[in-house]
Design a protein around this nucleic acid. Structure first.
Lengths: 209, 209
DNA sequence: TAGATTGTTAATCGATTAACAATC
DNA sequence: TAGATTGTTAATCGATTAACAATC
């Protein structure tokens, strides 16, 4: 175990392992070797063992890995059992869709509240999440613990809103705006969903195959 | 210029360059050097020049790059001037949100139609995109050219739907389901938006800072 | 012209793969 | 026990960075 300097590439594979192992659990598979897991995921057995060894020793020689156990370990590494608290800013079409459909709890998150400027949604409750006015955001954050803010707001106000929230002490952002957010504080983490970048990548691939 | 074997990492940086250059254009910046572009994007000047040199020679010694020209070149490489045609399958909350808000045209895509099984949306028109019944999907694809299918459907039917569409000749998928789609045909391209993977990555980062 | 900056080649760094002793 | 498979060290591969001649 050498918990130092886990590379971005490794971290991004963890959710994939977790997903695959969840599927295997659901199919009732009890044990799996790095070799067969690799075949299913199109990853070499070597890489899988390397990846896991960053965090501990989860297998057994001659046997492989217990699926349920390994799933729990990786889930733990990812923090699904941490009960993080989250609020959403911007309850437009996309925010609404996420509140309705996305299983935040599967990733260990509780959605406590949502905020918007539109009187049309303020006061409503979406999938049991109350929608408040932006004017009460500051006092909300002062009173509650907020680990992550979901930004589903227009591009134009993205960086300003993020800056304001960082000042209030927010350290995690799930950013759906097509803007590269940044902070001078390296402890503030941004995870971006850049729809446009993704579609452009696909555009390149279908044009250059 | 050596258009062979462009790595995934390079391709994924192209949309970011395009985005930054679009912003610079909008700000009226005329020229930029690899050094200043790198500072703005947190990328080394070397890497920027390496990346661009995969596709051609877009700069001028002693001057740098003309912003508008470079933006056009990268847009061209990404295929934004290709007029690709796209249909959406699944007009639930998320599909609806994309149709309403996402600027498909900025990436060079025209959304021709959407399909769903729910009578509640069949026959409706969302942001001037007509929603048809799934039962007419096959005949639609036979009659029209479809470059990309957006999959905003439930997980459970994702791989089956994709398989069926691949048989019908579809070669590009923008996949929003939390499923790893695959095809034996290497010419079929998948680009995934895995919300859950993204949030889990953020969960890891805030838990391990 | 002199200064700036490119495109490209060479050097470095990091990530992936292969190999293998340890051991269940 | 013999076969299988791990965790880890070493070898390879590829991507990033540095350096520099070419030249605007």
């Amino acid at each position: 175990m050498k918990k130092e300097n886990i590379s971005d590439a490794v971290i991004r594979r963890l959710p994939r392992y977790y997903r695959q192992l969840t599927d295997l659990c659901a199919s009732g598979v009890v044990r799996i070797s790095s070799h067969s897991l690799g075949q299913e995921m199109n990853i070499t057995a070597s890489q899988i063992r390397q990846d896991f060894s960053c965090f501990g020793e989860f297998g057994q020689q001659g046997y492989g890995y217990n699926v349920e156990e390994l799933r729990a370990e990786i889930g733990h590494i990812l923090g699904v059992d941490n009960d993080h608290h989250l609020i959403m800013i911007g309850v437009g079409n996309l925010g609404h869709a996420l509140l309705q459909n996305f299983k935040f709890s599967h990733a260990g998150f509780t959605v406590d509240a949502a905020f918007d400027i539109s009187p049309a949604v303020i006061g409503s409750v979406v999938n049991s999440v109350p929608v408040y006015a932006m004017s009460v955001l500051d006092s909300y954050i002062e009173k509650h613990s907020v680990d992550v803010v979901v930004l589903t707001i227009p591009q134009a106000v993205a960086q300003d809103t993020a800056d304001h929230l960082i000042e209030l002490g927010v350290k995690g952002f799930w950013n759906f705006t097509n803007v590269e957010l940044s902070s001078t504080d390296p402890n503030v983490k941004f995870e971006n969903i850049h729809f446009a970048d993704s579609l452009l990548t696909l555009s390149y691939r279908i044009a250059n195959r």
